[in-house]
Design a protein around this nucleic acid. Structure first.
Length: 446
RNA sequence: GUGGUUGUAGCUCAGUCGGUUAGAGCACCAGAUUGUGGUUCUGGGGGUCGUGGGUUCGAACCCCAUCAUCCACCCCA
């Protein structure tokens, strides 16, 4: 016999876990829909040509590729180059994120859509990453994006959505903002535009390695002393006015700062429940971001970000629809789950709750139980019946107890004859005899 | 992808220097209690010690490989 197991980086979700995850989804969905986002689902598989080249070399490595059906070797000849070979023997791959499939969808349906188009999407994505805590090979993302609008209002709404969702989950977070234009401006003024990527990677580590660590990182990445000093000065500055002064010579940077200030102007009058901060070190990996970038962190638990996103000036251009700006953010459902679990923030209502379980003794009492159960179910009460009346009462009671039922309704010979039921309250152990109607009324009225 | 950690009952773990028949708690099953769960008491079942190879008279323990796990890096939700 083979040993049962799930593949690396994947896991099962048992009944209680699915209930809890659905709780997260329902909170998120409710907020998304309130902000007039529309649902979208796309296939688990995309053409490899749609996916490849969108996430950088690193991303291409992490793509799950699907072997062609049939004789996949027929047209293959790159036996000495596994990367090239992969594209010869595979034509599909598993979705890596929800943004690229969304861009593909928008490009394909441009004539049918009304812009700006706001969509949300809650589906699994797959990445061939090495698993760690909070990092899986299969995980859910919950994305909201709006495409076809350059307005900073969109960014402001996305911040509000983050704020509202995490407030509703009772999870305190910090929402961080930055702008790729400001980062590009820094590189421009420091005269290291060609090392932009290296600079952002170094900056992104500020949280982890501190100011001195970033300095070392920058120098280690061949960034000149003078440029490093300049960057150093900027990340130590806390006031936006100071930053503005330092980047005065870069129109691009000033544009980024103006965008940020516009977002904050929208938010100024909003009573947000979570902290919104400007974070110059926030870089984010995905290289298609061009404007605002977002990230959500929780101070409560040591785990990676709970979500992130940004604006991309020309996402659908890759699919033949140019000059279409989009902005969106993502919620990492798995990580939110892990954090809520750790902090025990799942409410009682997130779990399944059997209210009533019937126990009977023979065919006649079982039929009676069934008739009663259907009445309770019609009233929307979660009801179950122990299906085998011959089973010892002790065992039936244990079943009800394991299912965490609130009430056990016992129907025996005696009860059947007197047209009553025995109601046992499993919370306090008190048992009383009454008519079914009496029980039904107290339950449906409370 | 690179470096490290851990892997023993369904779960959490103990297991001495390599030495007899591998243990505990929880969970499970049965009985105490033939119409009463959860609490209590008594008893019971359950192990290819991750997998494959090697060293040895002898391996859960040492060596190699492999898979999984967690951690750091890279990157990311």
């Amino acid at each position: 016999m083979m040993k049962p197991a799930t593949p690396k980086g994947t896991r099962d979700f048992g009944p209680q876990e699915v209930f809890k995850r659905n709780y997260i989804f329902s909170v998120i969905k409710k907020v998304f829909e309130k902000y007039a986002f529309l649902p979208l689902e796309t296939p688990a598989m995309e053409l490899l040509s749609t996916l490849s080249g969108k996430y950088g070399d690193e991303g291409d490595q992490l793509l799950f590729k699907i072997l062609k059906n049939g004789d996949f070797l027929e047209k293959a000849d790159a036996f000495d180059n596994y990367k090239k070979m992969a594209f010869q023997i595979c034509e599909k791959g598993l979705r890596y994120d929800l943004t690229i499939p969304f861009a593909r969808y928008v490009a394909m349906n441009r004539h049918a859509l009304t812009f700006p188009f706001k969509r949300y999407q809650i589906q699994t994505v797959w990445r061939g990453d090495k698993p760690q805590k909070g990092r899986y090979q299969e995980f859910y993302q919950c994305d909201v994006d709006v495409v076809g609008s350059n307005a900073m209002l969109q960014e402001a709404e996305l911040v509000c959505i983050y704020d509202e969702v995490f407030a509703n989950l009772h999870l305190p977070v910090q929402i961080r903002l930055n702008n790729r234009k400001i980062l590009a401006g820094i590189a421009e003024v420091a005269n290291i535009s060609d090392k932009f990527m290296a600079m952002t990677i170094a900056l992104d580590k500020l949280d982890k390695v501190g100011v001195e660590g970033v300095k070392k990182e920058l120098l280690g990445r061949d960034i000149p002393e003078a440029a490093t000093e300049f960057i150093f000065k900027i990340i130590q500055t806390s006031s936006m006015e100071q930053i503005k002064k330092l980047l005065q010579s870069s129109p691009l940077a000033l544009e980024g700062i103006a965008e940020y200030e516009e977002i904050m102007a929208f938010l100024a009058t909003m009573p947000l429940k979570n902290e919104v901060v400007f974070d110059i070190s926030l870089a984010r990996g995905l290289n298609y971001y061009t404007g605002t970038i977002f990230e959500v962190l929780t101070p409560a638990v040591q785990i990676g970000s709970l979500g992130g996103g940004g604006r991309y000036a020309d996402l659908t251009g890759l699919f033949g629809l140019p000059d279409m700006s989009g902005v969106g953010v993502s919620f990492g459902a798995e990580r939110i789950y892990d954090v809520l679990e750790e902090l025990q923030l799942f409410p009682e209502t997130a779990f399944s709750q059997v209210e009533v379980i019937f126990i009977s003794f023979d065919a006649a009492t079982l039929r009676m139980a069934f008739a009663y159960a259907q009445q309770l179910r019609a009233a929307g009460i979660c009801t179950d019946i122990y299906p085998d009346p011959e089973t010892k009462l002790k065992k039936q009671m244990k079943f009800a107890n394991d299912k965490n039922a609130k009430y056990v309704l016992i129907i025996g010979e005696e009860e059947l004859k007197n047209n009553t039921i025995s109601v046992k309250n499993m919370r306090d152990g008190v048992q009383e005899v009454m008519s079914f109607t009496e029980f039904y009324n107290t339950l449906t009225q409370s």
